[in-house]
Design a protein around this nucleic acid. Sequence first.
DNA 1: AACTCGTTCTTCATATTTGTAGAACAGCAC
DNA 2: GTGCTGTTCTACAAATATGAAGAACGAGTT
Lengths: 299, 299
Amino acid sequence: MKNEFRSWSDVRIFLAVVREGSTLAASKVLGLAQPTVARRIDALEHETGLTLFVRDTRGFKPTKDAMAILPIAEAFEDAAGALSRKVQDLSQPRPIRITGFDTNFSERVSQIFNEFCALHPKIQIEFLPSMQTLDLVAGEADIALRLSRSPQDPDLICRTISLARYSVYGTPDYAAKHGLPTKPEELAEHAVFSFKRSDIRPTLHDWLTHYVPEDKLARIYSETSLMYAAVYAGQGLGLLNLRLIAAKEKAGAVIRCFEPPAALNAEHMVLIAPDAYRRAEVKAFAKYFIPRYAALFKD
Amino acid sequence: MKNEFRSWSDVRIFLAVVREGSTLAASKVLGLAQPTVARRIDALEHETGLTLFVRDTRGFKPTKDAMAILPIAEAFEDAAGALSRKVQDLSQPRPIRITGFDTNFSERVSQIFNEFCALHPKIQIEFLPSMQTLDLVAGEADIALRLSRSPQDPDLICRTISLARYSVYGTPDYAAKHGLPTKPEELAEHAVFSFKRSDIRPTLHDWLTHYVPEDKLARIYSETSLMYAAVYAGQGLGLLNLRLIAAKEKAGAVIRCFEPPAALNAEHMVLIAPDAYRRAEVKAFAKYFIPRYAALFKD
DNA sequence: AACTCGTTCTTCATATTTGTAGAACAGCAC
DNA sequence: GTGCTGTTCTACAAATATGAAGAACGAGTT
């Protein structure tokens, strides 16, 4: 099949001429000049080697060959219609899907979402609070708020927000009863809470068990909020995020035992899938959200 | 659906770029320059409003949107393939279908056919000897050899060969026994054969019955050859074509009773369907056949 | 018979598309 | 590192397609 048919656009003109019965009428529906239409038909006849129309002073009358080709020309048209619809569909604004640890969706962060939604009522936002790491590249979500100690997929658009740090905390109450450790090695002498769940990488838990054997831990939680609450209640010590308990620490409700170990530091970042970033609504959201989100974590 | 997709040709380029992975490679398979391919893709993205490729120094990588469009682009390609095949099929030489009264396919005429076939071994000729008038415009045959008293469809290509004339003939044998009429009004006193068939317009028969009541006719044949044979056998008179029996008349085997009535004159013509005439092989045949055929009837 | 209408074709100036050539850049092999 | 290869861009000249205007033509209408 070496003689491949090249000028697909001419098929569109062919259809108009068949339907209108003249190049002049066709030129009007196509928005072209009449000589152009006639020339395109000439080119099409030349390319196919067929006589498609008999010309005369009352118009272009399709030959049998033209009629034989018509259904195929209509297949082109169907494909064009399908393409239009598909393009329409793809450019339709879809909900923006945002994933992150549930602790990321604090009240102040939610407020930014709300402000944005008020500004752009058409745009929907969908939250996928999940401890698991959804695959942005595969399209499982559009935007991720993430803490990570390892480098990200280079395809993702990445904006670093802050450095997340962790240290061991206890309440003044607990300190008064049991004292506080001054270095990790002293943890084994205390009641220590940890967080662990099978579907999450246990980075913090592993660090703790390096100093406190797992069976000596006071309790292991599968929800961070419960673990935090246990520490606040003065029942033991826990490895807490400096940022999350900053207000409590300042107020003296919790006491930091020692400086945050560098090994636990994690990049706090916003990741955007490149395919998603091409969507106007995602771009608008990112432009609005990221600086405001970053401001929350400004030192 | 006001935003109709216009530039169908760009779909072809889109496919090549998706498949080759770069505009340079695509330009080679398409036989275009690389900047042209890149520009067509730009135009396509602009027309659809989608980002179809991420450009970088190692090529054009299709986005998810591009992949979503791909099956539709392939539908265009399928249509183009179907069109190529259809065009191929339509330009394939088909047998030339020739229709006419069986008396037209005499030995001398067949010889012209044979000569032409020897000259063009690829071209097949198909004979449709039929007393019925096949519809050339509808494509029932390509070429017709015809006798007609009425004007033809103006769409048909028409070449007049001769004027066919008819008169009443009898053998010398018959004449010796019964004498011969000298004008149509005397026919009623003779044994007269006629030809009539339900699917043929009975022009000659009607003329005869104007002078001889149908139930007084000696016999009515449904095959002209049988009727001619009956006249040759001297059993009666018949309305014969001057051209067909010219040799016999010259030899004195039959005798013309009176001058051919003008009302029975018919145009002897070759008709060609315009759609058929566009086919190269039909044109070649007409060019070869018509002058030779006409020569057979030259006065 | 003269007019109008819708049509095709022709011509020419203009607009658009294409190709060529070369710069710039990143990955890869030596 | 250095050079090679495959790639994208950019700029400009050449080729090509387009549109506007008008001639010519035939059919239908007044």
